[in-house]
Design a binder for these strands. Structure first.
Lengths: 342, 342
DNA sequence: GCGTTTGATGAAAACGTTTGCATTACTGTT
DNA sequence: AACAGTAATGCAAACGTTTTCATCAAACGC
């Protein structure tokens, strides 16, 4: 099986050096450490490089020093409005620093995560960003053993073992619940994703319940519903709730669920806000412009993405833990039309 | 500036070979071409490899043969429900074939695209998948010069110069318009994104207008509106339309715009379907479960992602154009509650 | 049993950079 | 004008694999 692709049209560092009349070493320095080469030589090399259409081979470079200029990002799923936003700015930020982003998603399958980490290590990534705190020991060990910096993004926890950048989900759950309590609601339902393998949902729910209890509101099983991350399924759950003894307000684990509940109301002829107040978490695209607008907690995905990028870059360069081990990014409540005083 | 990260814990091919009592060459073969090494030796190497926790260094390998096992995917933006779905399955498919996905987004900035392609080439990608057909010559030339296979995904065109996998957008525009015409609508508005640098929107609109003309419906400027890819902005445009002389139906360039129009109706008290029929294109998440459900054209993002992965893999392995230069993936009309007979 | 094809392995030369060390070319000092 | 000190460059040895070629053993056909 001969390799077909030839390297005909690809000049190397050596060719550039030859044409510029300098040694390969100097050309290398020109690219990695431009300051230490004489201005005159610099321009000669620059000319040679562009006239040959030279593109450096970072793999060859990475072989020598141990940096590949690549950062891995492992997300549960890309197909999710809010992660997408994070990914977008994360990738942009990395490119500003001349790094590339290697993305992989595991669809909440931890076995896959091991395979992914392995694959990333084979590619000599300079750092890894994980989402959340629910991770298997094995991949973390593999990374630690090779001194690859790792951070967790999206969530914040004061006592996390990994450096983290994100929001405090207990607080998030508490804030939105508090909002309903402030509006006088006492019969509140909670619709959350399965908390088994989802630390975000778990923390949010526990924060929400804790807040409710302070007001003597104890969510019994009827008021505690599970809905997957899916508008249609959440809508079905919403219709179920409305068809029974309906509460006056609903706290939703995320905006997707909240949107489902909104549609359930519309389908059942229940007046949103007047009959049922709804709060979400996330402020996903669309939440602002629905009718009525959804009251929700804005999670600053952009800030998180940017901060995560900065942190992992810092670590990958210094090889040390980051100056700031844990960065808490504040979420803010956005009041829209979906909530009202009882 | 000393490099901090040491390679203490990282055994190499040589160490594995030593422990297994074979030469490095054999270990290499074991990984790349397992069939040609004797079963007995195979197990010895396997043992040595796992006991040392060996992880191969693909960069070193890529240095020799010219394959990095990495495929680049360049999208306008990741932060977009429908691309996200494509990316998700594309990445999954690649991993099944032991490849990794390098993602970059340019936010519709063509200059950035050059920088991205450059960065990908520096990383020795085995292939590139682009979205759509609007691309600068320069990056394409750079890729061609180095014999890096390129395909365009998402769109289909019978005469495309690049191999492509996707749907025919003219047809898409025609189908949804035809649906409204079939329902008896003759006063139809068209709300589309800026067509300047967006071939998808351009093709869809031209298909839609062509279909309308067949029925003597000529969209004058009042019936031809521009809306960005943003629910809020589309909603505003919708409200403008409704406040003036409203049509009986609207064709939207995509589901985001359609959702905006739906919300505009709800905000203005216009009855959807009864007073105004709305069709979108895309069948984004949420479109199915809105109230009423949105009639739209389902674009099979999953199929496209998978087919795109298969095609680029085929090309990167053979080094030749794909067996099937152009793959058209059929879109299907999904009728929901947002359209009705006049 | 003898040449001959197969099958499995080893030795060593790549692959395209980076970098420590050595060397040369300058600058300013006395 | 000689000297030290610094700035700029070159030489050559890595980096960790893959792969060609050669070798050696075993199996085969006669």
């Amino acid at each position: 099986m001969k390799t077909i692709r030839s390297r005909k049209g690809a000049p190397g560092l050596v060719e550039v050096a030859a044409r510029a009349g300098v040694s390969p070493a100097t050309v290398s320095r020109y690219f990695n450490n431009p300051d230490i080469v004489k201005p005159d030589t610099k321009t000669r090399i620059a000319e040679a490089a562009v006239s040959l259409g030279y593109i450096r081979d970072r793999m060859a470079g990475a072989l020598h020093n141990r940096f590949s200029g690549t950062i891995g990002l492992i997300v549960p799923t890309i197909d999710n409005a809010i992660f997408a936003e994070l990914i977008e700015v994360f990738g942009g930020r990395l490119r500003e620093h001349d790094r590339t982003m290697l993305i992989a998603s595991h669809g909440y399958d931890l076995n896959l995560e091991v395979a992914i980490v392995r694959s990333l290590l084979e590619r000599r990534i300079d750092g890894v960003v994980l989402i959340g705190f629910d991770h298997d020991e094995i991949p973390l060990d593999m990374l630690a053993q090779r001194y690859v910096p790792v951070i967790s993004a999206w969530n914040y926890r004061a006592n996390s073992s990994l450096p983290c950048v994100g929001t405090d989900n207990r607080e998030a759950g508490a804030i939105v619940t508090q909002h309903l309590l402030d509006l006088g609601h006492r019969d509140i339902a909670f619709v959350f994703p399965e908390t088994e393998s989802n630390d975000r949902a778990r923390d949010r729910l526990s924060g929400a319940i804790a807040a409710a209890r302070k007001y003597g509101v104890e969510p019994h099983s009827e008021r505690l519903r599970i809905a997957p991350y899916d508008i249609g399924a959440a809508k079905a759950v919403g219709q179920k709730i409305l068809s029974e003894r309906a509460p006056t307000a609903v706290v939703c684990g995320n905006d997707i669920i909240a949107q489902g509940i909104v549609y359930a109301c519309q389908a059942s002829g229940v007046r949103i806000a007047d009959d049922l107040s709804i709060v979400g978490i996330g402020d996903f695209s669309g939440s602002a412009h629905m009718e009525p607008g959804l009251t929700t907690l804005r999670l600053p995905a952009q800030k998180i993405g940017q901060q995560a990028a900065d942190t992992i870059l810092e670590m990958s360069i210094s090889g040390l833990p980051p100056a700031k081990m844990r960065t808490s990014i504040k979420a803010s409540l956005i009041e829209r039309g979906s909530t009202k005083h009882v």
